[in-house]
Amino acid sequence: MELLIQKMSDSYMSMRDMANVCDIKDLKYFRESYITPALEEELLTNRSTRNNNIG
């Protein structure tokens, strides 16, 4: 996970872009081993998640 954080820029990056920066080809492995733990520890934010105010 530290590798991911060290190599990321402060701007938006897609999961594929982040995997490319880390030289990881398998996106499923990357998501399960890097992205999910980083999201759970709140080291990353998911910019595709939006608050829907209904009602």
Rank of each mutant, 00 (worst) to 15 (best):
S11I: 12
Y29V: 07
I24S: 02
Y12H: 09
C22V: 10
I54N: 15
S9Q: 14
Y12W: 12
M18W: 00
L39R: 04
T49H: 05
D26C: 01
K25Y: 02
E42F: 09
G55I: 11
R50P: 00
I5V: 11
R47W: 09
S11E: 15
E40T: 11
N53H: 06
K25P: 00
L39C: 09
F30E: 00
S9T: 15
E42K: 14
E2W: 08
M13I: 10
D17P: 05
F30D: 01
F30M: 05
M15Y: 05
L43F: 13
R47V: 13
Y34L: 06
T49P: 02
I24V: 13
I5H: 15
R47F: 14
Q6M: 08
L43D: 02
N46D: 14
M18I: 01
M15S: 04
E32Y: 14
K7W: 04
E42Q: 13
E32P: 02
I5N: 15
K28L: 10
F30T: 02
N53P: 06
A19G: 04
Y34S: 03
D23F: 09
M8D: 02
P37H: 05
T45E: 05
S48I: 04
G55D: 07
R47E: 09
Q6A: 12
K28G: 04
C22R: 03
L4I: 08
Y34N: 04
R31N: 07
N51E: 08
R47H: 13
S9K: 13
S33Q: 05
C22A: 11
L3W: 05
M18P: 01
S14W: 04
R31A: 07
M15F: 10
Y29R: 04
E41C: 07
L4P: 00
N46T: 06
P37F: 02
R16A: 15
E2D: 13
R47G: 04
M15R: 06
N20D: 14
K25N: 09
A38F: 01
G55L: 10
L27Y: 00
I24L: 02
A19W: 01
T45V: 10
S11T: 11
L44M: 08
I24C: 08
L4N: 01
M8Q: 08
L4W: 00
D17F: 11
E40W: 02
K28E: 06
T36F: 10
N51Q: 10
S9W: 10
L27I: 10
E42G: 13
R16S: 12
D10Y: 11
Y12C: 05
R31V: 05
M18N: 02
F30V: 03
R16F: 08
N46Y: 03
L3D: 11
T36D: 12
T49C: 05
D23L: 13
E40K: 12
L3R: 07
S11D: 15
V21C: 09
M15N: 06
R31C: 04
P37G: 07
M15G: 06
D10K: 14
T45W: 04
D26P: 01
L39K: 08
D26Y: 00
Y34A: 11
M13L: 12
S9N: 15
A19Q: 01
N53M: 14
N51G: 12
Q6V: 06
I24N: 01
A19N: 01
S48K: 03
P37C: 06
I35Y: 02
A38H: 03
T36A: 11
R16D: 03
L44Q: 03
M13E: 14
T49D: 09
